[in-house]
Nucleic acid binder design. Sequence first.
DNA 1: TTGTATGCGTTATCAG
DNA 2: CTGATAACGCATACAA
Lengths: 350, 350
Amino acid sequence: MNRSGYRPDKPATIKDVARALNISISTVSRALRNMPDVNQDTRQAVLRKVEELDYQPNQIALSLITQKTHTIGVIIPNLDYFFSMAVRGIDDMALETGYTVMICQSNESFTREMVNTQRLMKGHVDGLIVSNASDSINTEQYERLLAKNFPIVFFDRANAQLNATKVILDNISGASQAVTHLIEQGCRRIAYLAGPANLSISQQRMIGYKDTLQKFGLTIDESLIVYSEFDRDFAYRSTLALLERPDRPDAIFAVSDRLIVGALLAIKEKGIKIPEDIALVGFNDEPVVSLLSPPISSVAQSAFDMGRLAAKLLVDQLNSDHVLPPQTIMLKPTLKKRASSIRRFDPPIG
Amino acid sequence: MNRSGYRPDKPATIKDVARALNISISTVSRALRNMPDVNQDTRQAVLRKVEELDYQPNQIALSLITQKTHTIGVIIPNLDYFFSMAVRGIDDMALETGYTVMICQSNESFTREMVNTQRLMKGHVDGLIVSNASDSINTEQYERLLAKNFPIVFFDRANAQLNATKVILDNISGASQAVTHLIEQGCRRIAYLAGPANLSISQQRMIGYKDTLQKFGLTIDESLIVYSEFDRDFAYRSTLALLERPDRPDAIFAVSDRLIVGALLAIKEKGIKIPEDIALVGFNDEPVVSLLSPPISSVAQSAFDMGRLAAKLLVDQLNSDHVLPPQTIMLKPTLKKRASSIRRFDPPIG
DNA sequence: TTGTATGCGTTATCAG
DNA sequence: CTGATAACGCATACAA
């Protein structure tokens, strides 16, 4: 007994059904799959016996033949609010289309992301839905898979160089909306908690930030830009440092709500007024930011929709009999304006 | 071509390796699994060819033989903070022990929980880790699986009648700590947002709540107990109603942080002082509660540890060659005391 | 030390 | 209408 480990009682196979009825396997198989050419009485007998023996087709055997598992692999950096919602969207679409979802978290580690990819490939998922870890740089492994025409859909965090199907946010627009709003509220020195430098979302939001400043004729002060991991405590400390400066900023925009919350804690600790002295805008519109004092403005996107859409694109590829060309779908974010950034009465409260 | 749908380029099989070297399949198989009785030269040649062809064993074929997929099915009601952390713990242990995790969310729906169970069973998971939906009542399906000795571990929300392996919290202790603390702070009319009546965690926490009141000689006022789903808005409205009463409560304890946040919003809206007029204690210690004004006290547990432990118990069963007897592991919660409930200076701030 | 044959559970292709 | 058999990719008992 080399196949070690405990195994539950063996379920009935198609063979058992056939034997019990003294007919051949193929007849049972045909009866079960509603093929024509099968006697009604035989079919009824099979159906009854199947019920009696609680027979269920062995998916593994089917997979061996079709080389399909009806399983989708999902690789995400973490399970924070955004990705939880995205996973819910993916699982939702998977349920509708008859797939099951295998989820692995990279914990923001590129190494673990690669390990998870291999893990899922070994488990023979039919396709992959990926959002990169914050220290992801190398795309070699994905390129190799894509070269073999293995179906992958990237969402949210997707390497810009990679020629693959993606569902992403219009991050430039999101950042632009945030910065425009801050400028309209009278802010002139807008600091930016920029997140991990190599992530596409960071880079795109940075473009939106800088372009908007320039569009309004404001100078870009690189010393007001702080790169970091998605670490609330780091944002807290960075903000304290920004507040120490004689020319301290009059607004802070952050690449994620996690960071803007860190900023909020630092500012409140210093007793500086929000939004009068410093206005705040975050990104993702997590539920928590609307509960804080003051409620924090944030760029909102629907992670659920993004997840559903990513799953949809993947399933479309899986159900297609030819290779679909890569496409990039860009979703539009909307700014939720709240007390943390509203200094004047002109703009309506969102 | 009945096997519809696109499939990526076929990977090399053990046959390809054998053919390329003009040797038999079994020799390749042996060489690969470091069996003795195999010529060093042959082994080297095989290894080289395997590298060259990028051959990887087909797990599906292996699964067909062993009837094991090295996959764990996870069924959870949602992916809020608690369950996200639990899933992280499960995935962590799975990675360590060579398993992959299939996750399905029931969205608090018993029907969907059943559908997901079938979905995972069809996908031939080796075992199941389950936390029930809030409207779960019927345990028939699990009983049937357990009767077949199919390995299942329940965690957090586990039906009390079911004779199965469980990892749960000492909910009575958690509620007792919370209520004791409130009483020590001078509260005498403690309302309870009790959650779904049929959930084991609700029932256990209710026992802790009532027993503690009685222990301190306080009467139980059933009109201060409100059942509900895990719905923040419902808690908000229930609290508004409680506040209308002439004999309004001087404290609210809630079965979950989601509900206590709803209560907080209602109380702040009414301009009632926390903790002077009403003290608050929640359950789960989600990060959000420590960020609110005032920070809310909460009964803390480690969802991550619970997840890891549940996975550990399941893997132990999977790796054992006999059926392990059901066991229930009970974890101890600790109360985090914060401003929402601290009226006196005697107890230290947790 | 290596090769051959059988089986895992199912479908598909033939014959009958 | 039904049955026998090959095949999916691999491990393994048995032969050589």
